[in-house]
Amino acid sequence: MGLLDQQFSDSNIVITKAEDLMNWARLSSLWQLGFGLACCAIEMMATSASHYDFDRFGVIPRPSPRQSDIIIISGTVTLKMALRIKRLYEQMPDPKYIISMGSCSNCGGPYWEHGYHVLKGVDRVIPVDVFVPGCPPRPEALLEGLLKLQEKIRMETLRKKSV
């Protein structure tokens, strides 16, 4: 609770909008599908390890898509993998969000020209919420991407997802 701790002697009532409450709950515990593809996955692991500590934003890796809220596409998406990624996305419960991490999953990256087996952007198979540029992006960049996603979720209403 931090800020409100020890501030009131009696029990209290907080009045807020239902949307704000739901958005606050959603954006504070974005469980991530623990799923690495290529080089960026190592930076994603570094982000969740000691130095950068993803946990403090409520991001905890889960092994199953059925328990997760976000999926970080970390690395090169090949044609063989693309259908699997689509299936993983479909297995996730709503509401679900996607961060595309690194140039490869944004647009094909260094494999853009001659990569006959590389999908040129993961947004061709699944809808992406936040693109994080870099090859690979620094952990700080991934954290920034996550904060942008949280901002986006904060803007959501019950009627529509924010864009």
Partner: peptide, 11 residues
């Protein structure tokens, strides 16, 4: 294998 074939030789 082959889920991460990134065409090294072609490049």
């Amino acid at each position: 294998v082959g889920y991460l074939h990134r065409c090294f030789e072609k490049h």
